[in-house]
Design a protein around this nucleic acid. Structure first.
Length: 589
RNA sequence: GGGGACGUAGUUCAGUUCUGGUUAGAACGCCGGCCUGUCACGCCGGAGGUCGCGAGUUCGAGUCUCGUCGUCCCCGCCA
């Protein structure tokens, strides 16, 4: 670079800077070598400026510019000039000017890149991840990370303004038995013992409340050793917060206001306030899921009272067993679903627990359906009416226990909506889901498990059910759902030691085990724990939705593959025998 | 742990099934030459292949079979 000093960014020059001396630095985005005239699109993170090498302006630079290639790093000195009339490029912000080069410094050359940074054909994700730094040069990719940054700044500003303070909590911490599989870190100083990387700072933030900090937050990495998905990475970022002396409304109000600010400032959109709330049971009944996508209708309809009047054995048996007959109505779905596509839906229903899928195509002249002969005409009309179905519509019906019928129709509802493109892509629909069950029975482990986590407080009026009907107890937990994605969740915590001990015993954790695993929390609760609660937001998921990308890999600078490897660094990798020995570890492979 | 899709020049793909058979093609990129207003510059020429890897069937395999590795999607799992 010598004594050259960059004076402008590549996206900033405009016609009113005519005649200015300027020094630009960046990467060669593309070149058009016409022989005597050489045009280079110079790119930095701010934008692209066309620079011109003209032998009549500077012969030496022009001569050397023939050698320039894509992705070389250069610095140019020159004069900002308006482009010739008719030669402006109105599709680029700097398209009315160009830089007439009077001096060129080549700062670095490059090997031929494995894929084109500015190319018509895109490379596979495998290659893009291996050379992630090249992909990060792409303006669209950079803009995602700029947006991520702005979102985190916005969140910090908001929480700081509300009296929250950021506190760091340990990464090398204690393994906890509940929840996801832990990433373990061996201790050299304490041979044979392990730290665990935190699945979330849950217990520490509760300790901070007991420590009297009252309002804590942290934008923090969390680690879970579970199988990956498009929206799951082994390490991911949460906006974690906790408040003392609040109830559900207190926590939810903070989050709603924060979401309002985020969408206003980053997306330039107003979101309706307050955000809708729906109890867990209502969500399951109406949408068949605890994270309903509210951008479209097609709600679940209960047809049990009509189905019971039919002669269809399957329906009657299910209803006698206490089950339900439920349906979704697909507007104009008749022509859209061929026999083959209906078979696919049926397979999907079976996969999600149903025993089968019944369907009715409502036509001008009546039903087209295998159920036709089982229903009286008046009941057919009644069913049509209750389903809101008219000619051309399709009714999909599942009969089963309430939970299974709901869940499989929930899956079908999404599938159908996607296939029929019923989901408005630029809509953002928030909903709170509240009062989740506190506990559920785990068939494989043959014991009760906490739905949220073992520190979630039960709804006061349900506490008396804890002993006899624990699965009926509702939790003071809430999830924030955006466009069918759970972007955050939290709860009011247990702050009374006796209740916490009771909870652990219901989970099948003996007092001795509890002392070993959670003793520090149980003890802390004894020393004046304030009522408290909080929430954690899946930051990567939120950014992905706000940036309009499909996978959280797109919003993480150096993400891992679905087999939890890093294609860039090659992690995880073997280590020296000496390192293992020092840690007292042996591997069996 | 289970199911599915994909793997062929540097890159993105075609060729692969029904039907194994001469020298594996295209586009973009790369290299060389020409070109004074380009912006997907244009024109001429050129190089570039362990058909993911391994075994099998066959006179002969990119193509068929089995195994294996990798990437992606889904189920389980993710308090």
């Amino acid at each position: 670079m010598g004594d050259w000093k960059r004076t402008h960014d590549c996206g900033s020059l405009r016609a009113d800077e005519d005649g200015k001396e300027s020094v630009l630095m960046g990467w060669v985005n593309s070149r058009r070598d016409l022989g005597n005239l050489i045009f280079i699109d110079l790119r930095d993170r701010d934008g692209i400026t066309q620079i011109v090498f003209d032998p009549q302006v500077d012969g030496e630079s022009h001569e050397r510019a023939h050698a320039l290639r894509n992705e070389w790093v250069i610095a140019v000195k020159g004069t900002v000039s308006p482009r010739l009339k008719g030669q402006e490029n109105f599709s680029m912000p700097t398209g009315s000017i160009e830089l007439k080069v009077t001096g060129l410094k080549i700062l670095n050359r490059t090997e031929t890149p494995p894929f084109q940074v500015d190319g018509a054909v895109d490379a596979s994700e495998t290659l893009r991840l291996k050379y992630r730094y090249l992909e990060l040069r792409r303006p669209q990719v950079f803009s995602v990370f700029l947006k991520r940054h702005r979102i985190s700044v916005c969140i910090r500003e908001f929480l700081n303004g509300k009296g929250f303070m950021e506190v760091e909590t340990p990464f090398l911490t204690k393994s906890t038995p509940e929840g996801a599989r832990d990433y373990l870190v061996p201790s050299r100083v304490n041979r044979g013992l392990f730290y665990a990387l935190p699945q979330s700072p849950q217990l520490f933030k509760q300790l901070l409340m007991i420590g009297g900090f009252e309002r804590y937050y942290q934008i923090v990495r969390c680690f879970r050793d579970e199988d990956l998905r498009a929206d799951r990475q082994p390490e991911f970022t949460q906006v974690d917060l906790e408040m003392a002396f609040v109830n559900e409304d207190g926590v939810m109000a903070v989050f709603e206001e924060m979401m309002g600010k985020l969408f206003r400032e980053i997306m330039d959109r107003a979101i309706p306030f307050p955000i809708k709330r729906m109890e867990f049971h209502e969500a399951m009944d109406r949408f068949g899921t605890d994270r309903p996508d509210m951008r479209f209708g097609m709600e679940l309809i209960d047809l049990t009272d009509i189905a019971v009047k039919s002669d269809f054995r399957v329906f009657k048996d299910v209803i006698e067993d206490g089950g339900v007959v439920k349906a979704i109505t697909v507007k104009n779905g008749g022509p859209a679903f061929s026999r083959k596509k209906l078979d696919e839906l049926s397979a999907l229903a079976v996969e999600s627990g149903a025993r089968g899928l019944a369907w009715i195509k409502v036509n001008e002249d009546g039903w087209q359906s295998s159920l036709k002969k089982f229903f009286k005409d008046e009941d057919k009309n009644g069913l049509n009416e209750k389903s809101g179905a008219g000619p051309g519509d399709l009714i999909l019906i599942v009969a089963h226990k309430r939970r299974v019928a709901n869940e499989s129709l929930g899956v079908l509802r999404l599938k159908v909506a996607r296939r029929m493109e019923l989901i408005p892509v630029s809509a953002y629909e928030f909903v709170w889901i509240t009062k989740f069950p506190l506990l559920e029975y785990d068939e494989t482990e043959k014991r009760l498990q906490a739905v949220h986590h073992p520190f979630t407080a039960p709804v006061e009026e349900d506490i008396h059910l804890l002993d006899d009907q624990p699965e009926k107890v509702r939790a003071r937990a809430y999830d924030l759902v955006l466009n069918g994605t759970e972007i955050g969740g939290g709860s009011i915590r247990i702050h009374v030691p006796a209740v916490q001990e009771k909870m652990l015993s219901i989970l099948g954790i003996s007092p001795e085990q509890a002392k070993v695993k959670f003793g520090f929390l149980l003890e802390a609760l004894k020393y004046g724990a304030p009522p408290h609660g909080g929430m954690a937001l899946g930051f990567d998921r939120l950014v992905a939705i706000m940036a309009g990308v499909n996978s959280i890999r797109e919003v993480i600078a150096f993400p891992k593959t679905t087999s939890a490897t890093c294609l860039l660094t090659g992690a995880p990798s073997g280590v020296d025998e000496a390192q293992l020995k020092e840690l007292g570890l042996r591997t069996d492979s």
